[in-house]
């Protein structure tokens, strides 16, 4: 446990030492801010629904950019060897890096807390969906971080790991929009596998154990796959 915290804190700090953190946060705020506020005053609704419905798409591009360096950079520089020859287990490393990435993805959301504050100031904001939306965002960030972590463990090239991560996250996000092309028998399964509907359920303010179980399973599957990749590659 102690090892996990040490690794997580180190990785989290790493983001803020280099310019990555600031670039990614700015980019995220520009993208979400623009798409959200460009239509906000036209509709004139005092809620954050548009912001949250866009979040899975923005996250599926932003989070792989956050996670791509986790393993790839270490493998490229060679510090992976130093890390693995210290008395830490694979599980500690995978979990430590996973928590760091999730935590950083969540810190992206901190500046966006000004949106609900601002809206509450000018209109009548229903707090339920907003709280639900942020809880959903925590799970979504966790799930996509675990996918990005897995993608990063596959290769020493950061660009490749970014692309793999994007492809996987984006596929999960749009899966429920592809149901139209699926044979009738598997529609139920495919719908369950897609992340968008689970996230939107929570974002509506309906916290259902099935949705939470879905995100926890995704996190477990990909952190465990990362562990397996590490094991297989040494």
């Amino acid at each position: 446990m102690k090892q996990i915290t040490t690794i997580a804190i180190k990785e989290f700090k790493d983001y803020f030492i280099s310019p990555i953190a600031y670039i990614v946060i700015s980019l995220f705020l520009i993208v979400t801010g623009w798409f959200f506020f460009s239509t906000f005053f036209i509709f004139g609704r005092a809620d954050l629904r548009d912001f949250f419905s866009l979040l899975p798409i923005t996250f599926s591009f932003i989070i792989p950019a956050v996670t791509m360096r986790l393993f790839s950079e270490e493998k490229n520089v060679g510090s992976y060897e130093t890390l693995l020859t210290m008395p830490v287990s694979f599980t500690d490393i995978a979990l430590g890096k996973f928590f760091a990435a999730t935590l950083f993805s969540l810190s992206l959301l901190v500046p966006t807390l000004s949106y609900p504050l601002f809206i509450a100031f000018i209109g009548d904001l229903d707090p339920g969906p907003v709280i639900g939306g942020y809880i959903g965002a925590v799970f979504l960030a966790g799930a996509y971080s675990s996918i990005g972590l897995f993608a990063s463990s596959l290769t020493r090239n950061q660009i490749i790991s970014f692309i793999i991560g994007c492809a996987m996250c984006f596929t999960l996000t749009i899966l429920d929009k592809l149901l139209f092309f699926m044979p009738e028998k598997i529609i139920g399964i495919v719908n369950y596998v897609g992340s968008n509907s689970h996230f939107l359920n929570i974002a509506k303010g309906v916290i259902d154990s099935r949705d939470i179980l879905y995100f926890v399973s995704v996190i477990f599957i990909f952190v465990f796959s990362t562990y397996l990749v590490m094991h297989e590659k040494n």
Partner: peptide, 20 residues
Amino acid sequence: LKIKSLIGYLPESAPLYHNM
């Protein structure tokens, strides 16, 4: 893990974290 804690290892060309 036990063995790793008994050994101090310096890999070739000492790969370290450059931003720290």
